[in-house]
């Protein structure tokens, strides 16, 4: 198993006490594509960031088990984490406008990723970076490598992000809403690219998304999160015919072009879901 999470709890200490945001999440991931869906604030991103130990210091993380390829993440030192981050697990963030460094060239940022984990000279790293940019289907990789993030489009930026995270050949890719900041037409392209590269390289993928049809289409399995819990886990192909009332509720909230609704229904929340 690449990732094993058992009873993960994440909380934030404040003056009024500990606020639990993730309340006992369990899931496992092998060389497959796992989607996590759920509303904003349901704990999707926190779960993913905890796995990379990227949460702020004051966050309180507890788990019966939180492991990456058998390595206990909670007990791992910063140094051990650095040999996992980037090298064995890549992490794609939501909006390339903010997640790429604004004052460094694209080429140098991708090259840095390669150089950090594979060594070699700066020149080799830059050549590798250009190759990687080509792999993510950027047409003029040399020109893009010399450009700064603000000079490229959102879709292009996300391709750069993917190239950067795939540079050290990781085994797992975590994508935290990789397409939410992009235009609808570009979203599909980026996801197809991620899927292609992940399948080609035989990697595991953890895809966090709001977009239920998209996840059901691209992933093997889906975990549905609600208020810090996984309320349902099922095969992606069965997502659209899910039985859990929360998942049904989410599906009901989607506007449809073919059957337009006068008003979109509002979720009626049942405390039973949290049991």
């Amino acid at each position: 198993m690449l990732v094993e999470i058992n009873n993960l709890k994440i909380g934030f200490q404040s003056r009024t006490g500990l606020h639990q945001a993730v309340k006992g999440v369990s899931m496992t991931l092998g060389t497959e594509k796992l989607g996590i869906v759920g509303e904003s604030g349901s704990g999707k991103s926190l779960t993913a960031r905890a796995l990379m130990k990227l949460l702020p210091k004051q966050t309180v993380i507890e788990a019966d088990k939180l492991a990456f390829d058998g390595i206990d993440i909670l007990a791992a030192s910063e140094k051990q984490m650095r040999s996992i981050r980037g090298k064995r697990a890549g992490f794609i963030l939501q909006d390339p406008k903010y997640s790429l460094n604004p004052v460094k060239t694209i080429g140098s940022q991708v090259a840095e990723s390669w150089h950090t984990h594979k060594g070699g000279s700066r020149r080799q790293a830059l050549e590798a970076a250009i190759m990687l940019l080509e792999q993510v289907k950027i047409r003029d990789p040399k020109k893009v490598a010399a450009a700064y993030p603000h000079e490229v489009s959102g879709g292009m930026g996300q391709r750069v992000m993917i190239a950067m995270m795939l540079a050290p050949d990781p085994e797992l890719l975590i994508a935290d809403e990789p397409t939410s900041a992009l235009d609808a037409t570009v979203q599909a392209e980026i996801l197809r690219l991620i899927e292609e590269l992940v399948s080609e390289r035989g990697m595991g993928l953890l895809l966090i998304s709001h977009d239920l049809p998209l996840v059901s289409h691209f992933c093997d399995r889906v975990a549905v999160m609600y208020a810090g819990h996984v309320v349902e886990e099922l095969k992606a192909s069965e997502l659209l015919s899910a039985q859990h009332p929360y998942t049904r509720g989410l599906l009901n909230c989607m506007p449809s072009l073919i059957h337009p609704k006068e008003r979109l229904p509002v979720l009626t929340r049942d405390p039973e879901w949290l049991k």
Binding site: L54, E78, R85, G86, D95, S99, L100, T116, M165, P168
Partner: peptide, 14 residues
């Protein structure tokens, strides 16, 4: 900034 998270996720030293 988010780019700091990216930099850390790349496995760079502090």
């Amino acid at each position: 900034g988010e780019f700091v998270i990216t930099a850390r996720a790349k496995g760079l030293t502090l």
